[in-house]
Design a protein around this nucleic acid. Structure first.
Length: 805
DNA sequence: AGCACGCCGACT
DNA sequence: GTCGGCGTGCTC
């Protein structure tokens, strides 16, 4: 039998299957979707079996070396989904498959030198022999980093046959194994065996006496500490056939030992009930349908999800819930764990690679029926999928900005289609694309326009900060906001202050000459890092000491413009010294679990003001919060992005929704320098529908999505002339082949003109109907392949660009 | 990706 | 005359 294998190299010339002979011994167990180790040239690589056939396309076959999984890691559905994904996003097959499995299953490769058979150390030159002191294998990398001039010597010894090169392949993360001791015979038989033990075998007696009643097994290390015994005691018992020791895979449960308060379904409002009915119907009928659940903040979308999932579980099926990374908070997880207990797996970036793997294994082994996770959880290997939910559907984090450049929403809908199951997109501020589709009837629109507690949405006041400045207020708090903060402080109520991080990033600036610290390799300003007192580049990792004097004019008035939040915190301390402030930003939440800790402190009333960035905009739900302040609403409005208005509207709406969710009434103050702007104006009125109409008109007149599709080609090269030349040629190539109604813009320089010493240009394609676009771009890539290989030109394609960078 | 094979300049 | 530069093409 022949296995068609796709190997672990993302390159166009190996983006196809290779045939391998399946050894007789593995024939029974080899299955499509398994990872395998295969010889590839002189190396040993990981690969995936795509299919198994009788005959091969080539004659000289190698045999596959090893099966790396007892059961396939890719289900047959995922195998075909990968195919689809690679066509849809124009990525290599291997890249699509790698995105579907936990990174712990990725292979790492190592090259080593070892002495050949029948060779003796003494035949080595002394400077090489030194390396073989106390070991038989010398890692290639070690020589490269410490004594690269010795490499040719090693190489020569290889050609001479004295040394050989060994290619090693390992899993990235070793599965945590634990030894468990089980009784190996009936209690009666063991009783006899126990009696027959020699009298001096005290430890064995004790241990066996204990183990024989533990049919569930005992962890060996526990057993040994319990009786102060050693490994040999257990081995002796094993030899006598009394017990058996089994290596068992151990789950690292990040929620181990945590109690989840069981919650029961809440009574639904009439609106919730009405929205849910068609969703449950689709679940019952196992029919694909995409729903847009448009519910204002606090309208109880989550409860609708939970009860729809309940219907899925009733049917014995499984559900995927996608949540944006940033709102995958413990609060959120608790709601799901509280309702479905141990039937839930949770996948988010806060988990270690090992923990992620363990959660994934729970899905694979059918130990859970619900997964709550960020973007990549859309690939959960369920085989009986009954529902996919995407919460906060509009969030940009659902788009992966590296290969494969997929949007989780598209993948979800495709999986829904394949599995005959409904997909629910939920949001208070749906993306224009989604809402437009709902309007057209492509998706079923369900609206929840009332909050569950019938509370009014909070009153929102917009403050013109230019006015404040004219009146001599140079602080970052308007008089109004400041007065309200004081008021809450007096009443013992809580406030949330929101600062948009962008535009406030922590660059350094010379106040004399205007010098801004920039990365020498990337056209981007350096970010100040407090912990190392260095300036670092976000893109390439370049770091330098924080200068004491301006590198350009020697002035000592060089200072960094603090992390925004830090600065606000300082000012708060000056103006409201009695206020207890909790600051949440990348600096204070980088440690594991600190995010959670800070929030629970705030929830317990240990602070009066929560000050933070994006990360506090979502999902927070604290009864005592009655004031929300947005310090600068328009910092992201001026970004070079046609979605800037939409993003501003979404953010302001989300933030406003944090106030007055319970008994106490809430109030919101938005400070802005662009008060007339419709996105700010309409967010303050909680008026999504008018915003939708206005923004749609703008999109139509500028020919942007959802009226046009948008594909972005990016080019990069160390030589600016080369990249301009290449991108012009590509634009020309496209102009010749695409229809006249399609717009091809550029090439223009990218918003970030240079990263890691490579100059960047881009070409934007706006189109309504271009059925052959994928094929044409594929041909373009083929056509320019020689240029990419020879000159080191990089071309990246984003078939559904969300960001212009 | 990594490696071997292959064709043109400065060296024992 | 050879060692070695990296351009080209292949890996089942």
């Amino acid at each position: 039998m022949i296995a068609k294998v796709i190997v672990d190299i993302p390159a166009s010339n190996v983006n196809k299957t290779f045939d391998y002979l399946i050894p007789k011994t593995l024939e029974a167990s080899a299955q499509p979707g398994m990872r395998v180790a295969v010889p590839f040239g002189p190396r040993k690589l990981q690969g995936f079996i795509l299919s198994i056939t009788k005959d091969a396309t080539v004659s000289k076959l190698k045999r596959l070396q090893e099966l790396l999984d007892p059961v396939p890691v890719l289900t047959s559905e995922l195998l075909s989904l990968g195919q689809w994904l690679s066509e849809e996003t124009l990525c290599f097959l291997i890249t699509a498959f790698q995105a579907m499995i936990p990174s712990a299953l990725k292979a790492t490769y190592k090259k080593e030198f070892a002495l050949s058979q029948e060779q003796h150390l003494s035949s080595l030159p002394s400077q090489v022999m030194r390396w073989f002191n106390h070991r038989t294998h010398i890692p290639y990398d070690e020589i490269v980093t410490t004594e690269p001039e010795l490499l040719p010597v090693f190489q020569k010894l290889v050609t001479a046959g004295t040394l050989e090169v060994i290619y090693k392949m390992n899993d990235k993360v070793t599965k945590k194994k634990i030894k468990v001791v089980y009784p190996n015979q009936s209690v009666g038989a063991l009783q006899t065996l126990l009696a027959a033990l020699p009298p001096q075998a005290l430890k064995q007696k004790e241990v066996l006496h204990y183990v024989m009643n533990e049919r569930e097994g005992v962890v060996q290390s526990d057993l040994l500490t319990m009786f102060d015994a050693s490994r040999s005691t257990v081995t002796a018992l094993e030899k006598k056939g009394a017990v058996v020791v089994i290596d068992q895979e151990l789950y690292r449960d990040p929620f181990a030992g945590r109690e989840f308060k069981k919650t029961t379904p809440l009574t639904l409002t009439a609106q919730q009930e009405e929205s849910m009915r068609p969703m449950v119907a689709a679940v019952e009928e196992e029919r694909h349908e995409t729903f847009l659940l448009h519910g204002v903040t606090g309208s109880g979308k989550t409860e609708v999800y939970l009860q729809t999932i309940e219907a899925v579980l009733q049917k014995g099926k499984e559900a995927i819930v996608l949540v944006p990374e940033i709102s995958l908070t413990p609060q959120m997880v608790l709601r799901f764990k509280g309702r479905f207990g141990s039937r839930v797996a949770v996948m988010h970036s806060g988990l270690s690679a090992g923990e992620k793997y363990d959660e994934w294994r729970k899905i694979q082994r059918k130990e859970v029926s619900v997964v709550v996770g960020a973007r990549s959880a859309v690939f959960a290997p369920f085989e009986n999928l009954g529902l996919i939910i995407i919460d906060e559907e509009h969030e940009s984090s659902y788009k992966q900005e590296e290969n494969p450049r997929y949007h989780a929403r598209d993948v979800a809908i495709h999986r829904g289609l394949m599995n005959h199951c409904p997909v629910i997109l939920g949001s208070a501020t749906p993306s224009l694309e989604t809402y437009a589709r709902a309007q057209k009837g492509v998706y079923t629109l369900c609206e929840l326009l009332e909050r569950v507690n019938s509370r009014e949405l909070p009153a929102v006041e917009i403050v013109d900060m230019r006015e404040e400045l004219r009146n001599g207020n140079r602080s970052m708090f308007s008089e109004d906001l400041f007065a309200k903060l004081q008021d809450r402080l007096q009443k013992g109520e809580q406030s949330v202050l929101f600062l948009n991080r962008r535009g406030y990033s922590s660059f350094i600036l010379c106040r004399d000459c205007g010098y801004v610290g920039e990365c020498p390799h990337c056209d981007i300003s350096l970010t100040y890092h407090k912990k190392h007192h260095t300036l670092r580049c976000h893109y390439c990792g370049y770091a330098e000491e924080m200068p004491t004097n301006c590198p350009s004019c020697e002035s000592s008035y060089i200072r960094f413009f603090g992390t925004g939040t830090q600065k606000v915190e300082e000012e708060l301390a000056k103006l409201l010294p009695e206020a207890r402030v909790i600051r949440m930003d990348v600096d204070t939440t980088s440690r594991k679990g600190s995010h959670e800790k800070l929030l629970s402190q705030f929830g317990e009333g240990k602070a009066d003001i929560l000050l933070g960035t994006q990360m506090i905009a979502k999902g927070l739900d604290f009864p005592k919060v009655t004031l929300v302040g947005v310090l600068a609403a328009d910092t992201m409005l001026h970004l070079p992005d046609f979605r800037a208005s939409e993003k501003t509207f979404q953010l302001l709406t989300q933030v406003s929704g944090r106030a007055g969710r319970h008994e106490l009434e809430g109030e919101v103050v938005i400070q802005s320098y662009t008060v007339g702007h419709y996105s700010i104006e309409l967010a303050s009125k909680h008026d999504y529908h008018t915003f939708y109409k206005e923004e749609m008109a703008v999109r139509q007149s500028h020919r942007y999505p959802p009226y046009y599709y948008l594909t972005l080609l990016s080019f990069s090269h160390p030589d600016v002339l080369k990249v301009v030349d290449a991108s012009e040629k590509c634009a020309g190539y496209l102009r010749e082949r695409l229809s006249e109604r399609t717009l091809i813009l550029g090439p223009v320089v990218s918003p970030i003109a240079r990263i890691k010493d490579r100059y960047r240009y881009q070409v934007m394609i706006k189109y309504k109907n271009e059925p052959a676009l994928s094929r044409i771009i594929q041909e373009l890539l083929q056509h320019f392949q020689p240029l990419m290989d020879k000159e080191g030109l990089h071309i990246s394609v984003d078939m559904n660009a969300q960001q212009m960078m």
